[in-house]
Design a protein around this nucleic acid. Sequence first.
DNA 1: GATGAAACTAGGTTGTG
DNA 2: CACAACCTAGTTTCATC
Lengths: 150, 150
Amino acid sequence: MDAIDHQIISCLVADARASYAEIGNTVGLSAPAVKRRVDKLLDSGVLRGFTAVVDPEALGWGTEAFVEVHFGGNVTPAEIRSSLEPLAEVVAAYTVSGAADAIVHLRAASIHHLETALERLRAVDMVDRTVSTVVLSTLLERPPAPGGEG
Amino acid sequence: MDAIDHQIISCLVADARASYAEIGNTVGLSAPAVKRRVDKLLDSGVLRGFTAVVDPEALGWGTEAFVEVHFGGNVTPAEIRSSLEPLAEVVAAYTVSGAADAIVHLRAASIHHLETALERLRAVDMVDRTVSTVVLSTLLERPPAPGGEG
DNA sequence: GATGAAACTAGGTTGTG
DNA sequence: CACAACCTAGTTTCATC
C-alpha cells in the first residue's frame, strides 16, 4: 500500500474498466506490474470489487429517504442487519450514536413505493419508531478521496 | 430498456469487469450484442460509468458521520452544492424535506479529522447550524436492486 | 433493426531475467 | 519490475432473420 497503489486505486475508482496499460501509463508502471498490484489489492480486500454506476432515475428509483430507526429493547447490530437485509429498498444502513439506533437509506420508485417500504420497515421486529427524511435532490455523490489525512 | 438490458445492468453492477461473453452467457445473447447494448446504455446515460469498490478502512477513512445542515436565509441547491464540493470529506449531500435543509455524508480518517471537517463545514457561508450523527458501524451498503416495483 | 458468426485488433496473463 | 510470448477478450464487419 504505497503511493503507487493509491494512484492505481484512484484510476480504478475513476474508471473500473481502464486497461492495465492505461493505468500503467498514468502511474509510471508497466501493465503486468499494475495487474500484479491490482490482484494483491483485491486479495488483501482493499479493493472489494468493481461495479457499474447506474442512474437511479433511469431505472425508476427516483425517490430516496433517510430514516432514523429507533429500536426497542436490546438489539445487536447483527440482528438489525439481518432484519433489514431482506428489504430491497434498503441501500445502506448504519448503527449510529445519538438518539436513533440506526440510519437507513431507502431508495424507491415513487412516494407510494417509499410509503410501502416504510411500512415494511416499521413492521420489522423490535422497530419502535422511525423518523423519515425525504430526499428532494442529490447534490453530490462521490467516492471518498483516496489518501486523505490521517 | 427491456428486460435483457436490466439483466445486463445487474451483471455489470455485480462485476463491472465481467467479460461481454460472460454476460451474454447469463442473459442469453452473444458478446457483440451485449457490447452494443452496453454502449447504448452508456450513451443514453442509464449507465454512468464503472468504478472500483474500495474498503474505506483500508484507505484510512474509517470514521463516518451524517450531518443535518440548517442554512440561514435563502440558499439555492446549486449554491449548497458548490459550497460543499471543495470539502474532500463530503462523500454525498442531499437537499431534504423536514427540519434540516440538507443531509451531508462525511467520511474522515479519525474522530479528530471528522472534527476538523465539521469545523470547515460549519464555516461554509450561510450554514446556520449542524446536527451530527456519528456512524458506529456499517450494517449494509449495496447498489439499488434493479427493476423494482414502479 | 437487431442478432450471430467470423476475422482482426488489443489487452490480459504468465514466465523469465 | 520490465520484457516477451502466449492466450483470451474486445471490436468491427458482414450476412442473416
